[in-house]
Simulated scan of single mutants.
Amino acid sequence: MRALVVDPRQPESVRLADIAEPVVATDDVLVEVHYAALNHGDLNDARSGRVPAGAVLGSDIAGVVLRSGPTGPPAGTRVVALAAGAFAEQVVVAPGSLAEVPTTVDLAHAAALPVAGVAALRALRACGSLLGRRVVITGASGGVGRFAVRLASIAGAHVIASVGRHERGVGMKELGADEVVVGLDGIDAPVDVVVDNVGGPQLVSAWQLLAPGGTVQSIGWTSGEPAVFPPYSTIGSPKSLTSFLIEGRAADDLADLVRLVESGALPVEIGWQGPLERFFEATDALRDRRINGKAVLTITAPSPGELPHTTDSRSAR
């Protein structure tokens, strides 16, 4: 089967290869992958060595169950999953890492949920009640950011969407942002929560914006720059900086996100979509911040009766 594997000798440390089909343990689920979403973390995984050479890259999939153990969904079930090795035609998934997708939800949209949606959901939940609180989402035009803006709005927060350029703020108000700023310029009052996707100097500035008792959830570092805190930055009223990693079962969170998508409360924006062979085009667009929302790779053709997603690589809305 075709897959994108880590190869440090290649551009982006990735190459398209033919590999053996996976071996499925008794309790696991074998999924035919129709769509897989691309994340900044995937690019870092390949270059950093966190995913070893020869291993399949990727984490976000949506497709159809081919074979299942006693605790998994039956063959033919449409599912979304958080699983290692997502950029392949077939992937083995633990039952606790997937959720069923109803026929009313596009599988391409479902594929956008695992890393970005679960990260946004868990980071906001970690902050407690958001009702009436001032919440900043940095990197708001990206996949995680857009979900975080919408979820914070649903929770009753006063949402401030921070983007890199003015044009990246298009659509933020429709998602529920009360304010849209470039960087952190124009935020003239303390904030209670920052969900930070950017890192670097902007993380330092976000820390300085926090009200007493406030928190920064550091869930990404797309800037690739160091964060240097001035002396005495941590002296004063209590506030917190929390690191973040998706761990443990994702099934319940994925089911919650799918229900929100099905109800229309959580829109999914695909800013780029194309076949597995166009992976490098997607990585260039992602790194250059030319994608609003998610980049989704089409891995296998939809099964009979499955409506293909029609957004092409130029579509941003």
Rank of each mutant, 00 (worst) to 15 (best):
3 A>W: 00
135 V>Y: 04
114 P>T: 04
231 P>Q: 06
114 P>A: 06
283 T>E: 05
243 S>M: 04
176 G>V: 05
69 G>D: 15
127 C>L: 04
250 A>D: 12
270 I>F: 11
204 V>M: 04
274 G>K: 00
30 L>S: 09
302 P>N: 12
13 S>Y: 14
275 P>C: 05
297 L>W: 03
269 E>S: 13
87 F>H: 11
235 I>D: 09
5 V>M: 02
212 P>S: 10
278 R>F: 00
11 P>E: 11
257 L>W: 14
25 A>Q: 15
229 F>G: 08
104 T>D: 15
122 R>Q: 12
298 T>R: 07
123 A>N: 03
40 H>Y: 15
306 E>L: 13
84 A>W: 01
291 I>Y: 06
3 A>T: 01
162 S>C: 12
191 V>L: 06
282 A>V: 13
72 G>H: 08
46 A>K: 06
3 A>Y: 01
210 L>D: 06
224 G>M: 09
130 L>W: 02
124 L>R: 06
55 A>V: 01
104 T>G: 14
313 S>A: 13
137 I>Q: 04
290 R>L: 13
98 L>H: 13
31 V>I: 13
160 I>G: 01
250 A>N: 13
138 T>Y: 09
254 L>A: 07
259 R>S: 14
297 L>I: 04
175 L>C: 09
205 S>W: 02
266 L>G: 02
297 L>C: 11
170 V>W: 15
194 V>D: 08
284 D>N: 08
268 V>M: 12
237 S>M: 09
260 L>R: 14
12 E>A: 15
85 G>F: 02
251 A>S: 14
127 C>Q: 11
205 S>Y: 00
6 V>S: 09
289 R>I: 07
11 P>Y: 15
92 V>A: 08
184 L>D: 11
131 L>G: 09
